[in-house]
Nucleic acid binder design. Structure first.
Lengths: 344, 344
DNA sequence: CTGAAAGCGCTTACAG
DNA sequence: CTGAAAGCGCTTACAG
């Protein structure tokens, strides 16, 4: 094999044609005689020639590279979204590169959000996952996105607030949470707590909203103490539930918990065990995202399959299609052993 | 803000200088008078101008994009490697894009490994994770790498066989396994099984080799039945241990298990529970990789911190440095509750 | 210190 | 069907 530092000039020279003709046989577009085509292809194959993506980019003005912004890949959930997106991008001839959210909106302590400078002029589009951001951060995100959208198409994914006016693939978080409450009510629970999420937000598609609807539907009394706010890590879930236990007399402890996600659910399991509660007899817990480890916890964690890999793929497809639609993803319960009937 | 379709020509015109001068103030290299510099910078800032990475690539012949090949991101372990690599690449001004291993070596059923065609001419370097590949696949990988290395620098990571002659950041897998055996022997175990990995390989840095050394050092009899081969998923771990139980009289069941990784360990826990074994009293299990969920399993899983995020960062650093060294990573035990003293 | 010019490797009207 | 030429947006010797 010939070393592939070859350029289109080398190929043209060896095939005895112009570079324009080589370009034509390469792209398959223009009309080329069968003989010329065959000759060109032979030389191309012999050299194992591949056109420089960079030079092609000069004319096409495209990088064939997409950006994706995720809170953090270390939550395996986001790894699934990224995997789905990555595979789909590859299938459509694009590379995809990951950026941390903090590159977009900065740290909570920083005054100015740092520019997404690296991405500047290097990306054909951007998928941004909007989730669990405190209001201040959401404002920042909004203004950064507003600027970025001048340069490239943007698609939003996750629990996208309705006031973000972008093409999006969104969870129906409120609906999902309402139905989760209703599932637990069906099991006989009346003291249902929810751990995780943020409170102060104008959006209607929040867990909060669905939770309240569910409680109202079941005609249960609303107890503010059954709402705990935290981010989506096991540590924070554990701390939040511990605090709830500490603030309530045992007779008022919740008998069922809706966790923000499986990580929070894991933390809650740990907190419950520390208090000597038996799972699920004394406390039912339902997670969300159906992480690969959910079936291996004790008890095996009941969760919700939010089809994250599909979500990532859909986002890339939407981005590349150029359509401006907003879609809601499907989800389904995955019943395991961590939720039981309430027995007083 | 002015829309940033601006080119270097726009900036030059507005600043009243040549594009060469703009380029100089942009790159900070050449000598520019203070006044010219200030003027140029002002215009650049006003336009929010960023040079086109593509055009810059035309002259530099670089894409500032790296490739990374991982078995699959869905194992959270690889997500950590990728995160470490991604952050480091970003820090050094590079994008990084992920490719699946099958793009390099094909499926086990395919005759020809598909080209890494997309990567062709689009990558400045490649990090490849070599792990748990069956011999046939390793051969393929070797020949593909040999071809690829003509075009870009390559760094290998993972459990890299010594006969792969590339710069690498490698685990000392044999050593780690030997010490793991020795830890379990110290706990009084004599029937120590190992679940996971492949058998047929020439390399000396295998778990196998370390396992045998450990057994020999402790002067324990070697029992072939205590070796089970499988890949690194929970399902395969579960199946492998079930098969081991089924093939042995209970009196000969192992009292301790070294699992390939935490996923396999999770599978083993499930298999043990099905047989009614109490963990860790009846069976000790040690995993590897110290996944975020390890502390939340019951019992909390004793594991090995292999510093995956650091591994990813180191690999990128090595790749970008151009050095040809081979480094071995550090690791350490993370003691939790899944390993107990053996009590006959 | 600064500018004119060549060159990076392609694609694409435009002629022929 | 095919080629000469312009152009994409930069960088970098080379003069001055």
């Amino acid at each position: 094999m010939i070393h592939s530092g070859s350029t289109i000039y080398d190929i043209a020279a060896e095939a005895g044609v112009s570079i324009a003709t080589v370009s034509r046989v390469l792209r398959g577009g223009g009309s080329v005689s069968a003989a010329t085509k065959a000759r060109g292809e032979a030389v191309i194959a012999r050299h194992n020639y591949h056109p420089s993506a960079i030079a092609q980019g000069m004319t096409s003005k495209k990088t064939y590279t997409l950006g994706m912004i995720l809170p953090k890949l270390l939550n395996p959930n986001y790894a699934m979204i990224f995997t789905g997106a990555n595979d789909e991008a590859r299938r459509q001839g694009h590379l995809i590169s990951l950026f941390p959210m903090r590159g977009l909106i900065g740290d909570e302590t920083e005054a100015e959000p740092p520019a997404l400078s690296l991405a500047n002029r290097r990306l054909d589009g951007l998928v941004v996952c909007v989730e669990y951001l405190p209001p201040r951060q959401k404002e920042r995100l909004q203004s950064t996105l507003k600027e970025l959208r001048q340069y490239m198409p943007i698609v939003l994914i996750g629990c996208v607030p309705s006031y973000f006016d972008y093409p999006a693939i969104s969870y129906s978080m409120a609906d999902m949470t309402r139905k989760t409450v209703s599932y637990l009510v069906g099991l006989g629970h009346e003291r249902i707590a929810m751990i995780g999420g943020t409170q102060e937000d104008q959006d209607e598609n929040r867990r909060d909203v669905g939770y309240l609807e569910g409680i109202r539907e079941a005609q249960l009394p609303y107890t503010a103490s059954y709402r705990a706010f935290c981010r989506g890590t096991a540590e924070e879930g554990e701390t939040a539930l511990e605090a709830m236990f500490a603030s309530l007399l045992p007779a008022y402890w919740p008998t069922a918990i809706i966790a923000l996600n499986d990580l929070v659910a894991m933390g809650c399991m740990a907190a419950a065990r520390k208090r000597g509660l038996r799972l699920p007899q004394d406390l039912s817990i339902i997670g969300c995202d159906n992480l690969y480890c959910a079936p291996y916890l004790s008890p095996a964690l009941t969760s919700i399959d939010t089809r994250q890999q599909e979500l990532g793929a859909k986002a890339v497809r939407l981005l590349l299609s150029g359509e401006k639609t907003r879609e809601t993803t499907q989800w389904e319960f995955v019943f395991r052993d961590s939720c039981a009937k309430y027995k007083p």
